[in-house]
Design a binder for these strands. Structure first.
Lengths: 144, 144
DNA sequence: GATAATTCCTATAAGTTCAATCGGGAATCT
DNA sequence: AGATTCCCGATTGAACTTATAGGAATTATC
């Protein structure tokens, strides 16, 4: 029941872009260095974010990535679901899926539904802007 | 970000025992058959529940398992944490762990903390008694 | 136009976890 | 004695995670 590195790194990556957004593209190398994450691994992750239109890429020297929209328009849920897949705790309560094959009156499904809603109610209401604000306020070690 | 079969099966197992509790031991074979789960696999799971004192076992013919306490005294969280391990979405917000090594002002940690609390607030307030009641009320296919 | 910087793409691999299966041992009721 | 049930540890196959590796395509700058 853990979020994988893919989702966690994606969030930190997007947060890094949000915090350092100046209109100029930001090199992935720099993000990787600041966040202590393998550059090659980050490439794979940002590729997903890029294809989904979450970031815009600029190739060549002075290239890099910039957020496609304002930080307030990304929720943590959007980023996590994109990179991580569904956040539902069990398959049978995933969006788009029908009712569980096993039983109609499956009581545990009600529990899973509630857990799913609880998770969603958090991640769908926290935006990159919120994360950036939290980072800035507790910014002991925030260096530009 | 999924609950594994171990936790899900444990919950269904305990719910099965709660629903059929008559004081007499219930054979694991029957539970396995009703729930459509491998008997051998269930053995491993109930072994954990047994060692933790959640169920009481009786060996030999007419043997089986019974709940050690009333259904209202088990929360889903107790059962899931025992079989599944921590339910925290990331390591750094797990109970007993110190603050994340990486950074002091890690904004994402606040998010994870909120997700963790959201999950806990559900699973720690739903008891086996609740699950049993839900099962009985929507009891389309509940057969004794 | 050459060079260097950067993103882009695909393949592979080591390690871990999941979800069982298998085979037998120990206790206990009849 | 014999059947039934719980108990225990080893093994295994598949999938997933978490990267690493190597190079191709694009573009700014000199």
């Amino acid at each position: 029941m853990k979020i994988s590195t893919k989702g966690r790194y994606a969030l930190r990556l997007m947060l890094d872009l949000a915090l350092r957004d100046s209109g100029e593209p930001i090199r992935l190398k720099d993000v990787a260095h600041r966040q202590g994450i393998s550059e090659k691994y980050l490439e794979q992750i940002i590729s997903v974010l890029n294809k989904a239109g979450f970031v815009r890429s600029v190739r060549g020297p002075q290239g890099g990535y910039v957020l496609a929209r304002a930080p307030g328009e990304y929720t943590a849920g959007m980023i996590l679901r994109l990179t991580e897949g569904s956040l539902a705790p069990v398959e049978c309560v995933e969006r788009g899926k029908g009712v569980c094959d096993r039983e109609n009156g499956c009581a545990t499904q009600i529990l899973w539904k509630r857990v799913d809603e609880a998770i969603s109610s958090v991640v769908d209401h926290v935006t990159l802007e919120d994360l950036a604000a939290w980072q800035m306020s507790g910014a002991d070690d925030y260096v530009i």
